[in-house]
Structures are given as structure tokens and as C-alpha cells.
Nucleic acid binder design. Structure first.
Length: 665
DNA sequence: GAAACTCCAGTTTTT
DNA sequence: CTGGAGTTTC
């Protein structure tokens, strides 16, 4: 799927290469699966393919289904986290988890950590950093004990202490976080040989996508599942490793060769996506990084247009020029979809959006708020979690006053005190009679009513269809009215109701779907899968509207566009200032490499001479990477040589577009 | 309980 | 300069 890659494989795989996109890494995996099933007679139920994102998993599953004529029943194509969830589920008792355990998303984790830090007396704005640090510790497979023993500075000590409290809280809440979904299976396999053997038997062949993005715990999981048989294929591209900052270890690609010497390395160097000039630029740039695997992309396609390097006066001029050119090039044919504008940071989309709006150009910004970050979805999910898992205090606290139930902080504090002495969860404590010693009549009554109502919904859920019960639940809550009171406009209210409805629809669909044994999942399973699902992705998939694509360089990985613009090709932006300071220029270069290889036909860099930042004008220096591009394939514009004619057209176009916009209003 | 005010930071992000 | 979060105020 990407610009290039490395693959390891067993016997020869006779399925034809399917050009289309990069050098065909996904295609290699799907063909390999097809060959395993049809050529080597593997049982599909014993093949597992893992990816990082739901989107990639979906694409892989779809393409495999198209390729394989015979039955693929039981074939597992899923994300690392989903696979981890299934492993945990198969052994949850041994992992100390009770049925219906909750999965905390990063928001829930951060909130929990924040609370713990207040107890430990740390600064409040540190929660983010600490969350990150704890996640790193976990991905590096360091236990609480190790973290406590290793801590040298007071800062590390604080982190280790919060880590301890965090793990304890999670186990009291009967909850796991995202990192646990990988970590717990590894720990399970470490401690229980039989569980490991069971899963190794279940994994006669393992395939892994984007291997350069694996972290230590994911790497260990792969190694364990593959076992000594080493029946595995992995694809990856060390030059596209752009997530080191969140724990990815591209060196896993090298390590693999040492762990499994029998693996064969296959370099995928032919690229089916980009013109020769674009690939020359990509090769030239990345040649400045040190390499373990040498490779050079080449193409059968035409040399193509030169790569343009456009100098602009300032950021306004830059955005205006890009928007203007997109409009005039679209006029010559093609679709808005063919254009992508890539940038280093999300905030950089604003100006471009403005200029595109001025010209009435439809556009789509990727990134931003995920479906599950929305308040109404978080509310509903918290209710669902609490229904599946009464011990989930995080969920309890979120919904206790949504909608308003007039239960104040003092009441909750007393409830927490009582729950603490009895070592039970908040919801359990709220239902107990002993609470009377702590809390007077009317307050206790409100809590009682709430938990009894929850119990009642829970019972209905066990007997009746989920969709019906949940609709009743929302009615009984008066949730619609509450959302209206919380929404700024009728339109916003409608949007939120639509979101709620689409969540209910997904739940309905998922709870009706039978597994291979013909059994329907219970509500706890459905919720667990939902937390791991990005519904925004799915909505996007169905969204075939024709719009210019705006996204960060990171978000563009794995995608391709006929025409690509890369903004603000300047020092301190690309490479980013922090990366210059942190001396991680190589990763910035890879980010640029990813950006370049997104383009199929045309690639344009822009930079500004000066730029308004934090309210003041600063002059900018073109990126050091400019010097790494092959001079023969570059044309410069706007730096005094060819500018004027083009610029006049640009400003005339802009004026006309503005007039046009006025008329339409 | 919402408006007004102050203060602060300001890459990248999936699950 | 901006937007968001958190705090104060009526």
C-alpha cells in the first residue's frame, strides 16, 4: 500500500501483482492470504492478519474477500487491539477480570490520572504528560514495581506513584485501558504456557501490516504468537516510520531478522503510484537518512511534471495562491477529490479553509474531533458501560448528573467515603442500606432511585432486544430534552440526536450479528468492540462527496492523490522547531518522504518569506530539505523569476471569485 | 447556572 | 493573535 517496503515470505506466492497504489504492501498481504487458503490449503480459521487501524483492517478484509473464491469463514483480520481484546476475553478469569469489563479510552484514562494526581499533590496541567509517561512505561513493558524501583528524580517518582494508583483503580473498576489490550495478552502468555500454546495453535499463520509502527509490547505479542514455527509475513517500510514519538520502534524490523533467521527479505521497489520525478525526489531526500535496508523506488510511468517550489510573500499569499490554483486546475477537468493540501500541524488548515470558502470550493478537513469524543456519545457510552459493568466508577461519575439528578459533590464525596470503607464500587455502595450512616434521607433516596433504575434497565437488557431497551432508556432519562437544553442551536441539537441515533443503529447491527458459532454477542461484548471502533471512519467511507482534502502529513500516510500541495516548507515548520531541538531530524525527513510519496502526478511545495505567528510577523527560511531535492526535477516560482504573470492571474481570479460569492448571497 | 473574565500555550495521534 | 480552560461574578 505504501511507496515501498520490505516483505518476508515463505514459499513462492503465485498470485499476480495488482498494480494500484504504492508498491502494493496490502496487496502482498491479501495475495498471501489467498495463496495460503487456496494454494497451501490452510484452514482460514487459523490465519490471523493484524493491522493498526480499523480502516486498514476493513480494506484488507474487503480485498481478501474479493481475491479468495472459496470460503473464508473464521479468517481473522483485525487490529492489534481487537486481537488483544479477543485474547483477553478468552482468558479473562485468569487475568482477574469479571464479565462485562470496561475499556477506558484515552479521555477516561486522562481523567482518572488527573484525579489521582490531585491526591498525590501534583500540578494539574501535568496529567497529559503523566498519561503519556505511563503509557510509555506500559508499552515498554515496565511494571509498577519496576517503575517505582527505577525512579530517580522526584518527577519519575511521582509518575511511578500515579502509575501504581492508576493500575489499582483500573482493577477496582474492572476496567482495562488501550495499552492493556496488548500488554495483558503478553503477560498472560508469559505466565501460562497452556494459554500460549492454545493461541499458537490458533495461529498457524500470522501476517502483520505496517511493522515499523509496532512498539515493544506489540512486537512481543507477534513474536509469541508466531512461536518457533515462525509462519509469518510482515510488511513495513522503515522510511515511513513517523510515530517514534508515541513508542513505535522501527528497529523491530531489523530485530525480526535476528529472531527469525529463516525469514526471507523481499524488497518492494517498483512503485505503481507516482511519476519518475516524484520518486526521484523521494529517493533523493530519504538517501540522507542512514539505512539498514537499502532500496530505491522506480517506476514504469512517465517522468511527469517537474516538482514546483513556490515562494510566497506571506501566509495569506500562500493560502490564496493554493486555493486559486486548485480552482483554475479543476476548471481544466478532474475532481476536487484529486487535490490534497498537506501540512505539519492541524492549525495550519485554517487559512486554507478560509481561502477555499471564499472561492466556494468544497473541502474536507481530516482529523479533529473523533466520533467518540463527542459529549452525547460519551454520555451514552458511559451509560452502556455502567450497564455492562456496575463497578465502572468512571462511567458512574460521568452519568450521575446527566441529565441533572440533583446529586451534588458533597453527596458524592460521602458516597465515595462509604464505598472506600466497604471496598465496593460507587454504584454498589449507592444501593446498600449501610449508606444511611453517612448520608441523610433525601440524598440517599436519589442515589437509590438511580441505581435501582439501572438494575431494572439491566434486567430488561438481558431479555429484550438492545435497541428497544436503549430507546426506552433514553426516553426515561429525558435525554432528548436534556440535549436540547445543552445545545446552542436547533441545528446542533439535531446533529447530536443524529449522532445518538447512529450509535444506536450500530449497536443494533452489532448485537444482531452472529459469530461463527451462530451466537449473538451480549451487550458487554458489543460495547467493548464499539470503544475500539472509529465510527467516524465508517461515515467517511460512505461519504463519497467530491471535496478537496486537507490533512496533516501524518494523517496522509497510506493515502494517495493525483495532486499534492505541501505547505510552509520552512525551517521550524518542516522540520519542526521541536524536532530541530530534540535532534529528530531523521523522523522529520521521513515525514517529508511520506508526503512526497502521496503524490501521483503533481507535487507542489510552498513557503512564505514572512509569516504572522503569535500575533507578530516573522521572517522565514526555506526548509533545509529544499537542498536535498534533486535540482533537475524542480522548478522555482515566485522568487522573482517567473512570478508576475502568474500572480496577476491569481489576483484577478480571486477578485472574480469574491464578487461571485457576493452575488450568491 | 450562565456570562464575563483571566490566563496560558501554541506538532504529529490510533486504539 | 487565537481558542480553550478555568475562575469569578451576578
Amino acid at each position: 500500500m505504501e511507496g515501498s517496503g520490505k516483505a518476508r515470505r515463505l514459499p513462492r506466492c503465485p498470485y499476480p501483482s495488482t498494480p494500484g497504489g504504492g508498491s502494493g504492501k496490502i496487496s502482498l498481504i491479501t495475495r498471501k492470504i489467498a495463496w495460503l487458503i487456496e494454494g497451501a490449503n490452510y484452514d482460514p480459521a487459523k490465519i490471523i492478519a493484524v493491522t493498526f487501524t480499523n480502516k486498514a483492517a476493513r480494506e484488507m478484509a474487503e480485498r481478501t474477500r474479493k481475491l479468495v473464491g472459496s470460503d473464508t469463514r473464521g479468517l481473522t483480520i483485525s487490529t492489534f487491539h481487537n486481537l488483544g481484546l479477543n485474547i483477553i476475553r478468552s482468558e479473562q478469569k485468569r487475568l482477574g477480570l469479571r464479565g462485562g469489563f470496561s475499556i477506558l479510552d484515552s479521555d477516561d484514562s486522562r481523567k482518572l490520572i488527573n484525579e489521582l494526581m490531585q491526591r498525590e499533590g501534583g500540578d494539574d496541567d501535568m496529567a497529559d504528560t503523566v498519561q503519556h509517561a505511563i503509557s510509555n512505561l506500559k508499552n515498554d513493558m515496565l511494571s509498577v514495581e519496576q517503575a517505582l524501583a527505577m525512579a530517580k528524580s522526584p518527577r519519575e517518582m511521582l509518575i511511578a506513584q500515579v502509575y501504581e494508583g492508576y493500575e489499582r483503580a483500573k482493577s477496582a473498576y474492572n476496567a482495562v485501558d488501550f495499552d492493556d489490550l496488548i500488554l495483558k495478552p503478553v503477560q498472560l502468555f508469559d505466565q501460562h504456557r497452556d494459554a500460549l500454546e492454545k493461541w499458537q495453535n490458533r495461529t498457524r499463520y500470522l501476517l502483520v501490516d505496517e511493522y515499523q509502527d509496532t512498539n515493544l509490547s506489540q512486537y512481543r505479542l507477534v513474536k509469541m504468537l508466531a512461536g518457533v514455527r515462525a509462519a509469518l509475513t510482515v510488511v513495513g517500510d522503515d522510511d515511513q516510520s513517523i510515530y517514534a514519538w508515541r513508542g513505535a520502534r522501527p528497529e523491530n524490523l531489523v530485530q525480526l531478522q535476528e529472531d527469525f533467521p529463516q525469514l526471507k527479505v523481499v524488497a518492494l521497489e517498483q512503485n505503481y503510484r507516482s511519476t519518475q520525478r516524484i520518486l526521484r525526489a523521494a529517493n533523493a531526500v530519504i538517501a540522507h537518512n542512514p539505512h539498514v535496508f537499502e532500496k530505491k523506488l522506480w517506476s514504469d510511468l512517465a517522468p511527469g511534471d517537474p516538482i514546483r517550489l513556490v515562494c510566497c510573500k506571506d501566509e495569506q499569499h500562500e493560502a490564496d495562491r493554493i486555493a486559486g490554483e486548485i480552482v483554475s486546475q479543476k476548471a481544466r477537468g478532474g475532481k476536487w477529490n484529486d487535490f490534497a493540501v498537506l501540512y505539519r500541524g492541524n492549525f495550519q488548515s485554517r487559512l486554507i479553509e478560509e481561502k477555499l470558502r471564499e472561492r466556494q470550493v468544497p473541502y474536507k478537513v481530516s482529523g479533529g474531533q473523533s466520533f467518540f469524543a463527542r459529549a452525547e456519545i460519551k454520555d451514552l457510552m458511559a451509560y452502556l458501560r455502567l450497564l455492562a459493568n456496575p463497578d465502572d466508577d468512571t462511567a458512574f461519575l460521568r452519568v450521575i448528573n446527566v441529565p441533572r439528578r440533583e446529586i451534588g459533590p458533597t453527596t458524592l464525596e460521602k458516597l465515595a467515603q462509604y464505598a472506600g470503607t466497604r471496598h465496593v464500587s460507587l454504584a454498589t455502595a449507592a444501593g446498600e442500606l449501610g449508606l444511611a450512616e453517612f448520608l441523610g434521607g433525601q440524598y440517599r433516596e436519589k442515589l437509590h432511585r438511580f441505581v435501582h433504575w439501572l438494575d431494572d434497565v439491566r434486567q430488561r437488557l438481558a431479555k429484550l432486544p438492545a435497541k428497544q431497551v436503549l430507546n426506552e432508556m433514553l426516553d426515561e432519562l429525558g435525554y432528548e430534552a436534556w440535549l436540547r437544553s445543552q445545545s446552542a442551536s436547533p441545528a446542533a441539537w439535531q446533529k447530536r440526536m443524529d449522532n445518538v441515533q447512529s450509535l444506536l443503529d450500530s449497536i443494533h447491527r452489532m448485537s444482531e450479528k452472529e459469530d461463527d458459532q451462530g451466537a449473538k454477542p451480549d451487550i458487554g461484548e458489543v460495547i467493548a468492540k464499539l470503544v475500539l471502533l472509529d465510527m467516524l471512519d465508517q461515515q467517511e467511507e460512505n461519504d463519497d462527496s467530491d471535496r478537496v482534502q486537507l490533512m496533516t502529513l501524518h494523517a496522509a500516510k497510506g493515502l494517495e492523490f493525483p495532486q499534492v500541495w505541501i505547505l510552509a516548507f520552512e525551517e521550524e515548520v518542516l522540520p519542526h522547531r521541536n524536532s530541530i531541538e530534540a535532534n529528530t531530524i531523521e523522523e522529520e525527513r521521513r515525514l517529508l518522504y511520506v508526503g512526497i510519496t502521496r503524490a501521483r502526478r503533481q507535487l507542489t511545495f510552498t513557503y512564505a518569506q514572512k509569516r504572522k505567528q503569535y500575533g507578530e510577523m516573522n521572517s522565514c527560511t526555506p526548509s533545509r530539505f529544499v537542498a536535498e531535492l534533486p535540482a533537475a526535477d524542480i522548478v522555482r516560482e515566485g522568487d522573482g523569476t517567473t512570478a508576475s504573470a502568474e500572480q496577476k492571474t491569481q489576483s484577478r481570479d480571486a477578485a472574480l471569485a469574491a464578487l461571485d460569492a457576493l452575488f450568491k448571497k
